[in-house]
Design a protein around this nucleic acid. Structure first.
Length: 239
DNA sequence: GCGACAG
DNA sequence: ATCTTGTCGC
C-alpha cells in the first residue's frame, strides 16, 4: 500500500524515531472536545507469535446503547520491532489503513496504549491523533512512565498519574479489586474528556467496551474467523 | 552503573 | 503481544 503516508515508519531508525517524537510533540493539543460524543471507536492489534504479521481492528461503538455499529479489519506486516517508547512506529501503519477504510466518523478514537503518559509525551494515542488530526485518547493496562498514589480497591477510584512533576494521565480502578487502567489524552481532547469517556465506556469488565470489542475482533481476524474489510455489525452474541 | 520498560 | 487449563477468591 504505497499511498500510506505512514509507511516510512516501518524503516525508520530508532534514533530518528525518537527525534521525530520530539518534533511532533509541539503539535499536541489538549483543547476540550466541542461536540458531545455519541459514536466512539476502539482500536487494538493482535500478533502472530513468531512472525511480523499483525491484525488490526477498529470498532465504532454507539454510546447510547454501548453496542458495536461498524468495524474495520486489516492485516499487515511490520518490520519495526517492539521498543518501549516507540510502539507507534510499529503499529501506526496498519492502524492508518484500518482507520481510513472505516465507514463511520467516531468523535473519538480510543487506543490500546498511552497518549501523554509517555517519556516524551508522545505515546501511540497522541502520535496517531496528530497523524490523522482527530481526537484520540489512550487506555493502557500497564504504566510506561510515571507513578501514582495508592488507589482504593473499589471501582471508580482514581489518582493522577504523575511524571517529573507533571500530570500525564489518570490511574482508574475500572472494576473492584482489579488492577487499574491508565487513561491519558492523546490529541485534541482534555484530561477531563479522556477521563469522562473512559468511565462512560466501562461496562462490567476491566477494559472499556470499545477496547474489548476491538481486541476480540483483532483476535478473530488473526485466527481466520473474520476477514479483512469493513463490516456493519450487529453482534450482541459476542458480548 | 543498575533497573524499568505501553503492546 | 503470545504460549495455555484449571483454579483460587471476591
Amino acid at each position: 500500500m504505497p499511498d500510506n503516508p505512514l509507511y516510512f515508519y516501518k524503516s525508520i531508525e530508532p534514533l530518528e524515531a525518537k527525534q521525530l517524537q520530539k518534533r511532533l510533540r509541539e503539535k499536541i493539543s489538549l483543547e476540550p472536545l466541542d461536540k458531545p460524543s455519541q459514536l466512539v471507536a476502539g482500536a487494538d492489534i493482535s500478533f502472530d507469535r513468531g512472525s511480523d504479521l499483525m491484525h488490526a481492528a477498529i470498532v465504532a461503538v454507539d454510546l447510547r446503547d454501548m453496542q458495536p455499529k461498524t468495524l474495520s479489519l486489516v492485516s499487515d506486516r511490520t518490520s519495526f520491532p517492539y521498543i518501549p517508547g516507540l510502539l507507534a512506529f510499529r503499529e501506526l501503519p496498519v492502524l492508518w489503513k484500518a482507520w481510513n477504510q472505516l465507514d463511520a466518523n467516531p468523535e473519538v478514537l480510543i487506543l490500546d496504549g498511552h497518549g501523554l503518559a509517555h517519556p516524551r509525551r508522545m505515546g501511540i494515542a497522541t502520535h496517531f491523533g496528530i497523524e490523522i488530526d482527530h481526537p484520540t485518547m489512550g487506555v493502557a493496562k500497564n504504566i510506561l512512565t510515571g507513578s501514582h498514589s495508592t488507589l482504593a480497591p473499589e471501582k471508580g477510584a482514581s489518582a493522577d498519574l504523575m511524571d517529573e512533576g507533571e500530570k500525564v494521565g489518570i490511574a482508574l480502578r475500572s472494576r473492584t479489586n482489579v488492577n487499574p487502567v491508565y487513561v491519558s489524552p492523546g490529541h485534541k481532547l482534555s484530561f477531563g474528556d479522556a477521563y469522562a469517556l473512559a468511565v462512560r465506556t466501562l461496562t462490567k469488565y476491566k477494559l472499556p467496551q470499545t477496547t474489548r470489542l476491538a481486541h476480540k475482533w483483532a483476535n478473530k481476524l488473526r485466527r481466520g474467523e473474520a476477514r479483512e474489510g469493513v463490516w456493519k455489525v450487529d453482534d450482541r452474541q459476542l458480548l
